Amino acid sequence: MLKTFKAWLRGSRLEWIDEVPKFGDQQIQVHVTFLENEPALEAKSRGRRMAEILNNLAKSQTLNVDPVAWQREIRQDRSLPGR
């Protein structure tokens, strides 16, 4: 079973918060995972705000483009060099 130990990282040193692992002076390999401090609620509210902005943009019809005409214009044949 794996044990988890809490620590503060200060510069290049870990300072144990709760229980201290008992490894003596032995050098051990560790894996440190930094967790994001951003609250989940804030991320959800940003998503809702983005959806609201996209809905407003769709309703405003500022990008009123006929997709078939746009595709025809983009795919117009051009003269080939040397022919």
Rank of each mutant, 00 (worst) to 15 (best):
K3H: 09
P39W: 02
L41V: 13
L2F: 04
L63E: 08
T33A: 07
T62R: 09
E19T: 12
I74R: 15
V65E: 00
E73F: 00
P67V: 03
N64H: 03
F34Q: 03
S60A: 15
R13K: 11
L41N: 14
R78H: 11
E73S: 06
G82W: 02
K6D: 03
R13N: 09
L63V: 07
D66S: 04
L57G: 11
T33V: 13
Q71A: 08
Q76V: 08
I53K: 14
T62P: 00
Q61G: 06
S12E: 02
K59Y: 09
F34H: 06
V68A: 05
L63R: 04
R75S: 04
S12C: 00
S60N: 10
K3S: 11
L54N: 14
E38W: 05
R10W: 00
W16N: 07
S79I: 08
I53R: 15
W16T: 02
G11H: 10
W8T: 14
L57S: 13
K3T: 11
D77E: 13
G11A: 01
K59P: 04
I28K: 01
Q29N: 12
N64W: 02
S12I: 09
I74W: 14
H31N: 14
A40S: 12
D18Y: 08
V32H: 09
I17Q: 05
S12R: 02
R72H: 03
Q61S: 07
T62Y: 08
P21T: 05
W8M: 10
G82N: 12
T4M: 05
S12K: 01
N55S: 13
P81W: 13
R78S: 13
N56E: 12
P67G: 07
I53N: 10
L2W: 02
D25Q: 03
D18Q: 13
Q29V: 11
L41H: 09
V68Y: 09
G47F: 10
Q76E: 13
K59S: 07
A43C: 10
T4G: 14
V65W: 01
T33C: 00
E52A: 14
L54A: 12
G11M: 11
T62E: 08
W16E: 03
E15K: 11
E38D: 14
D18I: 03
S60G: 09
V30P: 00
Q71I: 01
L63D: 02
A69Y: 10
D66A: 04
Q26W: 06
N56L: 07
E19N: 10
E73Q: 07
T4D: 15
G47M: 13
Q26P: 01
L9N: 10
F23V: 14
S79E: 04
L57H: 08
K3I: 09
E52F: 12
K59V: 02
M1G: 15
R49L: 15
W16C: 00
L2Q: 02
T62Q: 11
E38C: 03
G11K: 07
Q27H: 00
W16R: 07
